[in-house]
Design a protein around this nucleic acid. Structure first.
Length: 554
RNA sequence: GGGCCUGUAGCUUAGCCAGGUAGAGCGUCCGGCUUUUAACCGGAUGGCCAAGGGUUCGAAUCCCUUCAGGCCCGCCA
């Protein structure tokens, strides 16, 4: 992009016709990342977000009440927001909240949480009204024949004889069913669906340009040099292809394109796409820190399809982020860098760059990506402060277990401290870690949390235990039950008995623990056994042991 | 019918634009930590780069064909 000059305008545009989802996030984050990359290259870059609230409501979506029927064809900035039942909320509308704003506001909030810095929000409806599109609109209407030729040739479809590059609104504010009857600069004359004649001044925003012209008009007006867009626009004959020719009628070069793939939702129980349930950015940010959502985008190339999965894969993604973040902090004091092959060096730099752009704070982004450039060229030691970058030794995987095991937050940190995972540099959890625990608790409480990670504490002898227990284990279990019946019910005592009694009998600890995991969790292995038992009622443990003993004695 | 994107180890993928011995992570397996086992550390396993053909001294990378998946060409953002 640097070949195209030092100043860049990166644009994104979204129609606020309904709930925003993480697919929209990809569009915005892609722009955000490009902007940051420009700045790292010392190019001047700004990010403008076009809110397409001049578009009409296309249909009554499933989340809307049928009463929205009357608003079909009306501009989104001009119709009331739905209430929680999908019914038009006239009260809020009177307070100035439109349909478009209703959906946009929460999205803006999530962008803020994600550290996306948008230099300017452009509300299309207002832009037309305030005559920002006057010149391009008149040009378009005056050169309607050329535009028609471009669209017909490039997209290969024939336009209606009455087609005209302006969608006027009728007296009721509707855009549908209007027939253009003439053009008399700057007025478009028309007949509405009831046969009423009227005219619209295209310089006053009485209507809008149709999408295929509206888009290049935005480029021309705002000087857009770069814009990522969904693969639908990017297809041959699609709106980018027509747009890049139309924009030349306005004497402007088209922006540099980047197409990105869709994000789909991987089916996980109730979250399958077939139920029509999508996950919104705010909802996702209640499960994982914002860096993880950014990392989801940065680790995948735009052209790759992403299957977003709020279960297992998200935990793995989060841990991968953490691992790589830690790797980023590596110091080049033992010459490891020089031992890497060239490919490995490049892979490492790419990885660091992806971690860099996943950061919320753009200064940290630059610091990390700058580091990626420098490594290997010079001494790079004592590079950063772990706390500052939110590094933690506690994996999400591990935190998921602790959060289930300990209802009390302090008990979680106590356990972490005992296992030495809280880093030496601080005594307690960092702010970042406290936040992560809160998110993890949200996640566990939600239907998105993967079943495979849920602890399934048994109340009676499990099938796995039945299949695998050895008759010789019964003596050990009896001894354990006896010891448990009157020992201190804490982590140390429990652990001590499990180990001591096993050693006395010459059992391998590994086998003893596995036996207990079969009985307690119906699994081959699990998290710290004593931690689980400690959280269980003593009687529950004893009764479980008894049922195992009964099974073996039978 | 026309066109675009994707297809690399069990899984997720880097590398492709500017050809030069296929890089990771997860998983799996083994070893260590002998009071642990979704933790941590070390090691290993694993790819005829979708298929076929061509160009080249040399192709995952360039060209052609085929197959598979996704998408667009319906004023629809």
């Amino acid at each position: 992009m640097s070949h195209r000059g030092d100043k860049h305008v990166i644009a994104s545009g979204i129609t606020p016709s309904g709930e925003f989802h993480i697919g929209h996030l990809r569009e915005i984050l892609t722009s955000d990342i490009i902007k940051r990359a420009c700045i790292t290259q010392e190019l001047d870059a700004e990010f403008v977000f076009f809110v397409d609230d001049a578009d009409p409501l296309r249909k009554v979506y499933s989340f809307l009440d049928n009463s929205y029927e009357t608003y079909i064809g009306h501009q989104l900035a001009n119709i009331p927001p739905p209430d929680e039942n999908g019914i038009p909320d006239l009260e809020r509308f009177e307070q100035g909240i439109s349909y478009a704003q209703h959906f946009l506001e929460p999205f803006k909030k999530s962008l803020q949480m994600l550290g996306v810095e948008i230099d300017e929000y452009i509300y299309n409806y207002d832009a037309y009204k305030s005559e920002k599109f006057s010149d391009v609109s008149r040009t378009a209407c005056n050169r309607a024949d050329e535009i028609r030729e471009i669209i017909e040739r490039v997209s290969g479809r024939e336009l209606d004889a009455n087609w005209f590059p302006w969608n006027p609104i009728d007296a009721k504010g509707c855009m549908d069913g209007i027939t253009i009857t003439g053009w008399d600069d700057p007025f478009v004359h028309w007949l509405d669906s009831d046969g009423n004649a009227g005219r619209s001044d295209v310089t006053k925003g009485e209507g809008k340009l149709p999408w295929r012209i509206d888009w290049p008009a935005k480029w021309a007006w705002r000087g857009v040099t770069m814009e990522p867009f969904g693969k639908d626009h990017g297809a041959a004959g699609g709106s980018y292809d027509t747009g890049k020719e139309i924009v030349r009628l306005f004497d402007v070069e088209p922006p540099y394109p980047t197409t990105y793939e869709w994000i789909s939702l991987k089916g996980a129980g109730a979250m399958s796409s077939s139920t029509g349930v999508t996950i919104g950015p705010l909802e996702a940010l209640r499960l994982v820190p914002p860096q993880i959502m950014r990392y989801l985008i940065t680790r995948n190339q735009p052209k790759r399809h992403i299957d977003f999965d709020t279960g297992n894969a998200l935990i793995e993604l989060a841990d991968e982020y953490q691992r790589n973040l830690a790797e980023t902090m590596r110091e080049n004091d033992d010459g490891w860098w020089g031992e890497l092959s060239r490919r490995q060096q490049k892979a490492w730099k790419d990885m660091v760059s992806r971690i860099g752009y996943a950061q919320i704070n753009s200064d940290i982004s630059s610091a990390i990506s700058g580091f990626a450039q420098k490594i290997g060229n010079s001494e790079t030691t004592a590079y950063l402060d772990n706390q500052y970058f939110g590094l933690s030794k506690i994996t999400f995987r591990h935190l998921a277990l602790l959060a289930q095991l300990r209802e009390n937050d302090d008990a979680v940190w106590e356990s972490v401290r005992r296992s030495g995972l809280i880093h030496e540099i601080h005594d307690g959890p960092t702010e970042n870690e406290v936040h992560r625990l809160q998110l993890m608790r949200n996640w566990i409480a939600s239907p998105h949390f993967p079943d495979g990670f849920r602890l399934r504490i048994q109340t009676q002898i499990s099938e796995l235990a039945k299949e695998n227990m050895d008759p010789r284990d019964v003596e050990y279990l009896r001894a354990l039950a006896e010891a448990f019946s009157d020992c201190e019910w804490d982590w140390g005592a429990i652990n001590n008995h499990v180990c001591e009694l096993a050693k006395e009998r010459g059992m391998k600890l590994r086998d003893a623990f596995q036996l207990m995991y079969w009985i307690v969790l119906d699994q081959d292995y699990g998290p710290k056994l004593a931690s689980i038992l400690e959280e269980m009622e003593r009687d529950a443990v004893l009764s479980l042991l008894q049922s195992a003993i009964d099974e073996l004695s039978a």
